[in-house]
């Protein structure tokens, strides 16, 4: 099966991908205005301050929105869930849901989720989400 698209880290995003490899979902926080943001960049999108830090998020999230894709895609077996999740800390990100059937009956907006990591190459682990309270993988 051909691989799904593999991210290519840049200097500004390297900490995120180092984090997923270490089992952490890393976000950034502005030390001036307190904004927590994603995707990564070395300055705060809310106030432009360059005084920012990287920290490990809780990995807890809620399902913000989703589709169940029924069309073929490289590296995927349809149907599969493409999701937007609102992280507990505030930022939203795109992901896939795992550990749940890709059917409307199994999914509900706002359902609680938790992050898991899945290797797609030697360098890259992707953050995916499963229903909260799922068994340890």
């Amino acid at each position: 099966m051909p691989s799904r698209p593999v991210p290519q880290p840049t200097p500004e995003t390297q900490h995120f991908w180092d984090g997923t490899r270490a089992g952490e979902l890393r976000l950034q926080r502005c030390l001036d205005c307190g904004a927590i943001y994603f995707p990564p960049r070395p300055f705060c999108p809310a106030c432009s301050s360059g005084d920012v830090e990287v920290f490990a998020a809780s990995g807890r999230a809620r399902l913000a929105s989703f589709v169940i894709n029924h069309r073929p895609a490289p590296g995927f077996e349809a149907p599969y869930v493409i999701a937007l999740v609102d992280l507990e800390e505030g930022p939203r990100m795109m992901t896939n849901l795992v550990g749940v059937d890709p059917v409307p009956e199994a999914l509900s907006v706002d359902m609680p989720l938790e992050v898991v990591f899945e290797a797609v190459s030697d360098e890259i682990q992707l953050p995916l989400f499963r229903p909260a309270g799922g068994s340890a993988s």
Binding site: R4, P5, V6, S65, N69, I82, M94, N96
Partner: peptide, 30 residues
Amino acid sequence: AASLSGQFEMPFGPVGPPTLFTLPVMRYLH
């Protein structure tokens, strides 16, 4: 693959507008 979308959206299999453009809609319906 090094763009922000290439790193933080494309790996999750949105193969084009039918899955990208539609992604916010469940929130609207809900």
